[in-house]
Amino acid sequence: MRADPVLTFTDRGIYCPAGDFYIDPWRPVDRALITHGHSDHSRWGHQHYMATEAAAPVMHHRLGDVSIQTTPYGAKTQIGAASVSFHPAGHIPGSAQIRIDVGGEVWVVSGDYKPEPDGLCESFELVPCHAFISECTFGLPAFKWAPQSVVAEEINAWWSANAAEGRFSLLGAYSLGKAQRLMSLLDPSIGPILTHGAVEATNEVLRAQGYPLPATTRVTGDLDVKAHAGGIVIAPPSAFGTPWAKKFGRAATGFASGWMRLRGVRRRRAADRGFVLSDHADWPGLNDTIRATGCEKVFVTHGYTEIFNQWLLSEGYDSAIVATEYTGEGADTEDIAEVD
């Protein structure tokens, strides 16, 4: 007879009966273990939070004065009958996969993850397990990413060409994660790096933690635009086309996301350029990771779950779909960059 499963799937979120806690729950609970600070995973209203030391400052910045128990990566914490540890997911600074061991049966919740090291956030760590709960935002064979260095060159070449024409470059990115990753890829010798207030607020938190970010200038009402001509402006895409963006004149606009791999989505976004850069695993990344965990059982969450599940079944995995309320199904959700 097998004992209860290590994790069950409830309408509040992923639940561990042995430890009586939830992982990234979407309704208020007593104890929530959080994979990373994005708002669809780290929600407001729980009694007690647990997260990595690296993720906590941003969570405090976003959620205010909440109770967060922190842990270093890799350290084991006993919660009830469950032994829990957090391991780098490579998604954004501080992001983690959560490993739960109940009586030698190991399950891992991936949260959002990216196998390729990006030089800024803690690099993804492969965690062998019996069951792996994997996201599959980009679980289609059409999604394959070029190496980060190639995309970095494209972005810098674009910025450089715009600067040569005396134009600003407006690069859209969500304020936590993608924005900082982009900054770390920029070549500061091309020109000044300017940031929207929402992005700069996150920068301050991450800089205080010691993440290596280049020097940036916050865009304020009295910014001397001429003195920063040819600069690049990192801003949430929602700031495009607002009066805030007007001061940059006829700026070239760009957007960085995994969805930019699709020409249709690229053309729909009202930006001149789309750069294919994602903080999620691509198709080979998902497949390689699942294989390498050595798991016997896969649960797929948010993304192209039906198709990806069917594919895993055809590959001989014992796979199932888990319905979650993490966003990120479509290329057209308003906060697109939050999830990719």
Binding site: L140, A142, G264, I307, Q310, W311
Partner: peptide, 13 residues
């Protein structure tokens, strides 16, 4: 082939 056919409408071309 079925995976190709499922991918096609999402790519749209």
């Amino acid at each position: 082939l079925w995976l190709f056919e499922e991918t096609y409408p999402i790519v749209g071309d």
